[in-house]
């Protein structure tokens, strides 16, 4: 299971970075989306995939009796999803506004502020 997840993470990272390097703003955005999903999956995988073991502590004990799934990575991922959603929404609006202002279809046409 970990190996499969690792391959998926690697594939998403590869696709994301490939898209980031293209000239089209739309592909750039899709690349960022893939990248942020790849990372969420990576956190999930890196913390260990344990199936069917709920992190509950029995009433008469102070700690869990067996190895359970770790709930913290899911909290981290949830936060990361919310943040990346907000940031990507902003990026989309920024790109669409830039397109309306400059009517540039490739990133190569946005060199005015470069040095």
């Amino acid at each position: 299971m970990e190996i499969l997840a690792a391959i998926v993470v690697g594939g998403l990272f590869g696709c994301g970075i490939y898209l980031l390097m293209s000239r089209s703003p739309v592909r750039l955005i899709i690349g960022l989306v893939l990248l942020s999903n790849a990372i969420n999956l990576l956190i999930f995988t890196a913390a260990g995939l344990i199936r069917g073991k709920v992190p509950l502590i029995p009433p008469d004990s102070l700690r869990a009796v067996e190895v359970t799934a770790d709930p913290l990575p899911q909290a981290l991922i949830l936060t990361a999803i919310v943040i990346s959603f907000g940031v990507l929404a902003f990026a989309l609006v920024l790109f669409s506004r830039t397109f309306k202002t400059t009517s540039a279809t490739t990133l190569d046409e946005m060199k005015a502020t470069d040095t």
Binding site: P25, L42, I43, L94, F95, T98, T101, A112
Partner: peptide, 23 residues
């Protein structure tokens, strides 16, 4: 807007790497 696109993109990539590392 042109400046912001570069700033936003590179900072997003930086945050992505940071998140990867801490994960």
């Amino acid at each position: 807007l042109e400046g912001a696109i570069k700033y936003v993109t590179l900072n997003l990539i930086s945050s992505a790497l940071f998140l990867t590392a801490l994960g």
